[in-house]
């Protein structure tokens, strides 16, 4: 054994996890009450949400203080890298489930609903053509085209990936102005993306009669783009926090994994969008 070794950082007892648990209890119970129109659902839900936000601020704040005071060594850094990678993998699998659903619906479920035996026995007059709201669709809708806002959003997200890498180059060169500018641009592009997405939803609901209730097309469309939008929002918040931290003078060119983790996440969100653009909007 070498005479010295790096002691792995083990945190002191912490009150934050139990706040997190209480928060999720309230969010879970509150949502159930809210959905079933019984009891003080929204109240319980928002108490939970507020507790969760308090917990996230406190917990991440503590991690940032520990990191900035140099308590984490190389080993802890490696742990963070492994964990962020596998966390993103778990997110990939979450989206994989919905991509699988879309594949199954388009390749198996809808064609079998339109098969001869199905049409002759159950669903008279149904034509299995995608997009569809199913054999008992109540109202017509127009599907979302790919080459309007979605294509523009693709461009925006790809550009934001480039600006983020440019920001990272700034970090590596110790050019804080480039770093700040790159981060700011990335966050703004993310916000622009979300703005367009919200506009697209309003347009879909208002003029195209495309709703969550528009059969399987509406279900998959809103579920997949909605969860992607949620992840863009989370990623943008992460990058915004990184921007604030950069402005507070955090990070050095050798020690900035939090920034990299947020960047990894952003690129992940980017890649999901590309697949989404192809299979949800385009094909």
């Amino acid at each position: 054994m070498s005479p010295t070794f790096e002691k792995y950082f083990v945190p002191e007892p912490s009150k934050f996890p139990i706040f997190g648990s209480f928060a999720l209890l309230c969010i879970g119970a509150g949502s159930v009450m809210w959905l079933n129109h019984t009891g003080p659902g929204p109240l319980v839900f928002f108490v939970g949400l507020a507790t969760l936000i308090y917990m996230l601020f406190g917990w991440f704040g503590q991690v940032i203080r520990e990191s900035e005071s140099g308590q984490y060594g190389k080993n802890v850094d490696a742990s963070f890298r492994w964990s962020m990678g596998w966390f993103i993998f778990s997110e990939v699998m979450f989206f994989f489930a919905f991509f699988g659903v879309l594949f199954y619906v388009r390749v198996i479920a809808v064609p079998s609903l339109g098969s001869e035996e199905s049409v002759s026995v159950l669903w008279q007059g149904f034509e299995a053509v995608w997009p569809t709201a199913g054999p008992r669709a109540e109202e017509a809708f127009s599907p979302m085209g790919a080459w309007g806002i979605p294509a523009l959003n693709t461009l925006i997200l790809l550009t934001s990936g480039a600006t983020l890498t440019w920001a990272h180059w700034g970090m590596m060169k110790d050019n804080r102005t480039q770093l700040k500018l790159g981060l700011l641009l990335t966050v703004l592009l993310g916000a622009l993306f979300m703005g367009f997405q919200i506009y697209e939803y309003m347009h879909a609901y208002g003029e195209m009669n495309l709703k969550m209730t528009s059969g399987i097309y509406g279900s998959t469309f809103y579920m997949m783009t909605g969860f992607h939008g949620l992840h863009v929002t989370i990623g943008a918040i992460m990058l915004l926090v990184m921007l604030f931290r950069v402005m507070a003078g955090h990070f050095t060119k050798d020690n900035h994994f939090a920034f990299e983790a947020a960047a990894w996440y952003w690129h992940f969100v980017d890649v999901v969008w590309l697949v989404l653009f192809v299979v949800v909007y385009w094909l």
């Binding site: 959905l35 659903v101 619906v105 569809t132 709201a133 998959t220 579920m223």
Partner: peptide, 25 residues
Amino acid sequence: AGAVTMILTDRHFGTSFFNAAGGGD
């Protein structure tokens, strides 16, 4: 998580993932 989320939206938000009438299965 994805599976039970689709159950939840089928229950409360009118999606048709598991409803053949809406094109699901």
